[in-house]
């Protein structure tokens, strides 16, 4: 009799056990889109270098930058911005230009900055957005293989009265990346 009671108990337990309806298709709705940011390029030039040049000072340099063309980034980036900062403590005006170049060296984007006044001047900041609905396509970022920075300065004689006068160019990027 006891055995029958126990058997019945186990059967009831088995019947009692159940699983609420689960919807595993929800996994398809999962979106993993982190926003990542990182510094890109920093260029610093002291005023004395400019003043040592003969005639007008012209600096232009291509910097290989493969971070954007990595498959892990290029295949997944959705949109984002490049941030620029220009800090001028020299006595000179200048006009910087940044170009994004593809693998073949072709310019695929040019960012013209306004003439930077001589010091004292506030820190210049600019955000350049890329992506759907923005002026610039995210494809520019995906295809950028190097960055070209150019600066033209005609005054190579004046001297700033600020300590350790320099032209500093800073940049960073902030992008949304779809991991899933």
């Amino acid at each position: 009799m006891k055995n029958k009671i126990l058997l019945l108990s186990f059967i009831l337990l088995a019947l009692y056990s159940c699983i609420e309806t689960q919807n595993f298709d929800q996994y398809d709705d999962l979106e993993i889109i982190p926003t990542v940011e990182a510094s890109i390029l920093y260029v610093e030039s002291p005023e004395r270098i400019i003043n040592e040049s003969v005639g007008q000072y012209f600096y232009s340099q291509d910097f290989n930058f493969d971070a954007f063309t990595f498959d892990a980034f290029a295949d997944r980036v959705l949109d984002g911005s490049i941030f620029f900062e220009i800090d001028n403590t020299t006595s000179k005006e200048f006009k910087p230009t940044v170009e994004f170049l593809d693998e073949d060296g072709n310019t695929i984007d040019t960012i013209d900055f306004p003439v930077q006044p001589s010091a004292p001047t506030p820190l210049y900041r600019r955000q350049v957005p890329y992506g759907p609905g923005k002026q610039r396509s995210i494809e520019i970022i995906k295809n950028t293989s190097s960055i070209k920075v150019s600066v033209l300065i005609e005054d190579n004689s004046s001297v700033s009265n600020l300590p350790d006068p320099k032209i500093i160019f800073r940049s960073s990027g902030k992008f949304r990346v779809r991991l899933k």
Partner: peptide, 19 residues
């Protein structure tokens, strides 16, 4: 802090692949 180019030191290796 990303690629850092400090002149005039960088003039001597301007052909380097900074990346």
């Amino acid at each position: 802090e990303g690629i850092e180019v400090i002149l005039p030191d960088a003039f001597s290796n301007s052909n380097d692949d900074f990346w």
